[in-house]
Design a protein around this nucleic acid. Structure first.
Lengths: 103, 103
DNA sequence: CAAATATATGAATATATTATCATATAAACA
DNA sequence: TGTTTATATGATAATATATTCATATATTTG
């Protein structure tokens, strides 16, 4: 036995982790994830109001997060209800909430 | 009693979390954190070799991470040894390693 | 002191991300 | 059908981040 590495992070894994972090590293997106952890599903308008975010900007974020597989969208009439597809993201939120970084 | 929220993420907390995530959401930076979790301290050159990263680029990243309080630097002669100042970041790495996001 | 080595810095560039605005689409309803 | 409401889209502009390159600085050593 030689190496006793704590984890095995290959360059590909680092890339992937960075990619995930990057798509989440924005206050609006964290806000969306947080809300959808607490609410199961919400319409665009509801999220708008909670986050006090302009409709079009929010829509861009939602669309992007959907494309990347983070969120699900369910159209009901005029409304579109979004929900969390990638539940693992909640762990990240918890991790960040408990993070006492002095930065 | 009214709300039973899972966490209390104020706009400020979301901002801060996003800020931290952003400064870490890069393969080189994740690589640095991972290495410095496993090694206590490493010189710029050593990190360079491990990560196969060009000296100047690495230096920029290290400097930036130092400024933001993530890393410590200890100059010994010509060499500068970097180490992890913000140990909480390790939790984030672990979180990411266990994250099975299908993105 | 000159040369070699390790690291940092700054400017320029390249690239990516975010925000804004105007407009499109589609459903609901009077 | 015309109007209202909810959401999406695309182009542009604004801003931030990453990379490269040339060079500076500081330390060590012959």
């Amino acid at each position: 036995m030689t190496d006793t590495l704590k984890r095995n992070l290959t360059p590909q894994k680092l890339e992937k982790a960075a990619y995930i972090l990057k798509t989440v590293a924005h206050p609006i997106r964290l806000g969306i994830i947080n809300l959808l952890d607490e609410h199961e599903q919400l319409s665009v308008n509801q999220i708008c109001e909670y986050l006090k975010c302009e409709q079009s900007l929010l829509s861009h974020h939602l669309t992007n997060m959907k494309i990347k597989g983070l969120l699900k969208a369910d159209k009901q009439g005029v409304q579109v209800f979004y929900s969390l597809k990638e539940k693992d993201l909640i762990k990240l939120l918890d991790c960040m909430e408990n993070c006492n970084c002095n930065m």
